[in-house]
Amino acid sequence: MNPVTSTDELLFADEKEFETVAHEPKPWKILIVDDEEEVHTVTRLVLSDFTFEGRGLEMLSAYSGKEAMELLKEVDDIAVVLLDVVMEENHTGLDVAKRIREELNNPFTRIILRTGQPGQAPENKVISELDINDYKQKTELTAQKLYVTITTALRSYRDLKTIETNRNSLLQLAMSVAHQIRNRTMSIAGFANIAVRELSAGEDATSHLSTIRTEASRLEALVASVSDYASLTRGIKEHILLKNLINEAYTAAEKQLAAKNIALADVATMTVTVDDFMIETDKGLFVRMLEELILNAVVFKKEHCHITIAASPLNEGCILTVADNGVGISSEIISFIFDPFFSSLPDGVGMGLCTVKKIVDEHGWEISVVSSEEHGSTFEIVIPVCSSSEPSTEEST
């Protein structure tokens, strides 16, 4: 069944029916460090309309090395520092660059040195001795070159942060897997020992053997879920109509539930408000992400599940909202819902929303959730890159 043409399961609403809280993609933070006010003014003017991956800039200013270090200590997500060499002293900028790496232990922020007096800090010496990312004379840094320099620096910062996020996720996953396996194997070993004793005594050990089988099955499901999670890697992004992706996610969710003898149309209805909206995404990952959100809504429904999927333009991107009328999430556990193996269900594996978060991170997007018990949940995903170019897949018919 094609969900686009089915008025029973999937309803397409007019865009005016949907309202969302305005969200803005988080801007890239740039710190301008220079003792000349004119440099700050010109830099802000040149970069006023700069965007990278649909995100603009938030430009912070410091007029001395001391001010720069204070800001860097307070703000932990500064992507790029445009750093003057000569300020309070001839080598203040070099000292700041060294302190960023060593004192603040910050390997992520990209450092671009700018100097009007190149003789004070020879380029070859600075590049070889300091962990900086670029070195420019102020006279050569035209508007176009500044654009290129900032774009290159932001791309490098983004990639480093993605690697760090993946590393932390892998560490958390490994710890969670170890904990889950330990619990299952201890349970299996414990009931096996009890079964051996009871069988030796001629007693019925059927219930214990049944428990062992159940725990082994859960262990197998755990290993399968970890393998599936590990296989989620970013592929090739395409420009695709969001409506097409929703159709495919709906079909995928149907198949998942059908394997459990559940008809999606019997337990849920969906209202979709997306127009002919196009996004740039990895098709397979996006479908999987939306499928998991649909299944999550169905699993935690109260009676009949109603899911609302909507998208609205947001600068150069969009905000995608998936809302349901389910049991909601309590304030005590909402901060854990994206953790590996976290589930409020006794037989849940707990990797669905964790998978959603990984896919969001793989794209460099942002996800948030608002929920209250008995009133359902609303997931919002800020997608900063959107294009109106022709889709690379066939349009809905």
Rank of each mutant, 00 (worst) to 15 (best):
E248K: 11
A195R: 01
V126K: 10
E215Q: 14
I194Q: 12
S387K: 09
H91V: 02
L242I: 01
L82H: 00
S227G: 12
R101D: 10
A201T: 07
V322G: 05
N90S: 04
E332G: 03
R44D: 05
V226Y: 04
E88V: 07
P3T: 06
A297W: 00
S396W: 15
R182W: 06
E53R: 13
C354S: 15
L45R: 14
R182S: 15
E374F: 06
E248Q: 13
R110M: 04
P340L: 00
L45W: 14
V370L: 11
Q180P: 08
L141N: 02
N315K: 14
V385R: 07
D84E: 06
E291K: 05
S396E: 15
M278K: 12
A195N: 00
T308Y: 04
E291W: 01
R167E: 02
V126Q: 09
L353F: 07
I367Y: 05
N2D: 11
L199S: 13
A263S: 14
N168G: 01
S169A: 09
H304F: 05
K358A: 06
K255T: 11
V75H: 12
L72A: 14
G284K: 06
E36T: 08
N106V: 00
L290A: 08
A62C: 09
L320Y: 05
Y157I: 02
K260Y: 13
E129S: 14
E254L: 07
T185Y: 03
M175P: 04
K243P: 07
M270T: 04
V46R: 07
C354N: 15
V96T: 04
E395G: 09
E303R: 10
T206F: 09
Q180N: 14
V39R: 01
E390G: 03
T142Y: 04
V177I: 13
G364C: 05
H91W: 03
I240M: 00
L320E: 03
K255D: 12
A268L: 07
A249I: 02
S227A: 13
G348P: 10
A121I: 05
L241H: 14
E15F: 09
G54L: 10
E373M: 10
A263V: 06
P118Y: 04
E103L: 09
T92V: 10
M186F: 08
T378Q: 15
N296W: 03
N325T: 01
L219Y: 01
M278N: 11
Q180C: 13
E37D: 10
V75S: 03
E238W: 00
V356H: 05
S330N: 13
S231N: 13
V356L: 10
S227D: 15
N296M: 04
D134E: 13
L94F: 01
E164G: 01
R158S: 02
